[in-house]
């Protein structure tokens, strides 16, 4: 990887540390939808399938931990929506503002606090934590950025925090030998 000292635009610098895209989901947490994740991963953990185990250990049903972001992901389409509906809007904003058409996610951190429960209404906010200088990797030339997402339930309780590291870039060579390409 090589570095360049190209300056970060002031409009991007001004966004670092500032909560953006604060929103509340327009649907409540739905156990049957969470079971799709359990089915997709053949996860037989009885706290998610056996109500007596859930009552005993978690004071009632809870959602699989890894579904944390699920409850804030937009519908593919809904009335009044314009254009593609995407999760992690800050990531797509950065791609557009920095003119970087491609991107990969390289790192994901999930921290789990109070469990998410059926009927919860989840809110979140996205915070841009950092943007690197210009880097050249085997994927291309662009910038790394770190975005944190905090999730709360309708009572204001923190249910989890996610952190994503993305790399937005212009292609040069093999485009997808690392990370999870998003576009």
């Amino acid at each position: 990887m090589t570095d360049s000292a190209a300056e970060l635009p002031a409009e991007i610098v001004s966004l670092i540390g500032v909560p953006q895209h604060s929103a509340t989901a327009d649907f409540t947490v739905e156990p049957a939808y969470a079971h799709n994740t359990l089915a997709a991963t053949e996860n037989a953990n009885p706290i998610y399938w056996d109500s007596s185990v859930a009552d005993d250990l978690t004071s009632g049903p809870t959602m699989p931990l890894a579904t944390l972001s699920l409850w804030m992901r937009p519908h593919y389409w809904q009335p009044g929506a314009v254009g593609e509906q995407v999760a992690l809007q800050v990531h797509f904003d950065l791609k557009a503002r920095l003119g970087l058409p491609e991107a990969v996610m390289s790192d994901n951190t999930l921290i789990f606090h109070d469990p998410v429960r059926p009927g919860d209404l989840i809110s979140h906010q996205q915070v841009l934590r950092s943007v690197s200088g210009v880097k050249t990797t085997k994927l291309g030339t662009g910038r790394f950025w770190v975005i944190d997402v905090e999730y709360h339930n309708q009572h204001g309780d923190l249910v989890g925090v996610e952190s994503y590291t993305g790399f937005g870039y212009q292609r040069s060579g093999d485009p997808a030998s690392s990370g999870e390409a998003d576009q």
Partner: peptide
């Protein structure tokens, strides 16, 4: 079922 994950951090190197 009594095990409770506090955090996970992962890095994706390849698909």
């Amino acid at each position: 079922p009594r095990g409770r994950i506090g955090r996970m951090k992962f890095r994706m190197h390849d698909s």
